[in-house]
């Protein structure tokens, strides 16, 4: 909602940036979750894909490769080999805070040490 020259208008966010003459500042968050998992990384990636698809709906979750999932095209989930176990990195922007938080909850509940 923009008020300019005593008139009120509803505009899209991208249009509003131009009208206001300011540049957006992107906030990105990455959270690291250490998990106990003895098998190879692709097995964990695949299992995580199944868990997330079950909770969020299959259309939301895409496999990018054997080490990476994408959720709703915006949140990135990376799985790394660690010694011992694995590390899952969940990365999202402030605009996807609700989804990012939900993913952390699901992953922590399912895998946390």
């Amino acid at each position: 909602l923009i008020m300019k020259n005593s008139s009120l208008r509803v505009v899209g966010v991208n249009e509003a940036w131009g009208e206001l003459g300011v540049s957006p500042h992107q906030l990105r968050f990455t959270e690291r979750i250490e998990v106990d998992h003895g098998g190879p990384v692709p097995t964990l990636t695949s299992a995580l894909h199944t868990v997330l698809a079950g909770k969020l709906g299959g259309a939301m979750v895409q496999a990018v490769n054997e080490y990476q999932l994408s959720v709703a095209d915006t949140v990135c989930v990376n799985i790394h080999e660690d010694d011992p176990g694995k590390t899952i990195l969940v990365s999202w922007t402030h605009q996807d805070e609700a989804l990012g938080g939900k993913l952390l909850d699901i992953i922590r509940t399912t895998y946390a040490k």
């Binding site: 957006p24 500042h25 990105r28 968050f29």
Partner: peptide
């Protein structure tokens, strides 16, 4: 034009996020 917070602690990340939003 961007800030990236990398952490392993949700509580602290949320605290940091609120501090950043106060600064911006």
């Amino acid at each position: 034009a961007s800030t990236h917070i990398i952490s392993a602690n949700s509580k602290l990340r949320e605290k940091l996020r609120d501090i950043l939003l106060d600064c911006l």
